[in-house]
Simulated scan of single mutants.
Amino acid sequence: MGLPSLLVVTDRHGADRPLPETVRAAVAGGVRFVWLRDRDLDRGARRDLARDLIAILAPVGGCLVVGGDVELARETGAQGVHLPGSAGIDGIRTARQTLGAAALIGFSAHSVDEIGAAEAAGADYATLSPIFLTASKPGYGPALGLDALHAAAAHRLPVFALGGIDAANARACREVGAAGVAAMGGVMRGPDPRGAAARFLANLT
Rank of each mutant, 00 (worst) to 15 (best):
residue 185 G to V: 07
residue 98 T to Q: 10
residue 80 G to M: 08
residue 135 A to Q: 13
residue 23 V to P: 03
residue 127 T to P: 08
residue 52 D to Q: 15
residue 45 A to P: 01
residue 23 V to L: 03
residue 25 A to I: 02
residue 78 A to P: 00
residue 29 G to H: 10
residue 120 A to D: 11
residue 156 R to M: 02
residue 26 A to M: 08
residue 176 V to F: 11
residue 151 A to V: 04
residue 169 N to K: 10
residue 135 A to L: 03
residue 122 G to Q: 05
residue 96 R to W: 11
residue 25 A to Y: 04
residue 136 S to P: 14
residue 29 G to R: 07
residue 63 C to K: 15
residue 3 L to T: 12
residue 17 R to F: 09
residue 140 Y to P: 00
residue 181 V to P: 15
residue 55 A to I: 02
residue 63 C to M: 15
residue 60 V to L: 00
residue 84 P to Y: 06
residue 77 G to L: 05
residue 5 S to Y: 00
residue 112 V to K: 00
residue 165 I to Y: 09
residue 134 T to V: 14
residue 78 A to T: 11
residue 74 R to F: 02
residue 115 I to F: 11
residue 19 L to R: 04
residue 34 V to D: 07
residue 90 D to G: 13
residue 85 G to K: 08
residue 130 P to E: 09
residue 24 R to D: 13
residue 147 D to N: 13
residue 162 L to I: 13
residue 46 R to M: 01
residue 108 S to Y: 13
residue 27 V to H: 05
residue 174 R to I: 13
residue 189 R to M: 09
residue 63 C to A: 13
residue 128 L to H: 04
residue 50 A to Q: 04
residue 94 T to K: 11
residue 175 E to H: 03
residue 192 D to S: 13
residue 141 G to M: 11
residue 10 T to E: 02
residue 196 A to K: 14
residue 92 I to Q: 07
residue 135 A to Y: 00
residue 167 A to Q: 10
residue 68 G to Q: 10
residue 95 A to F: 08
residue 108 S to N: 12
residue 73 A to E: 10
residue 34 V to E: 06
residue 139 G to K: 14
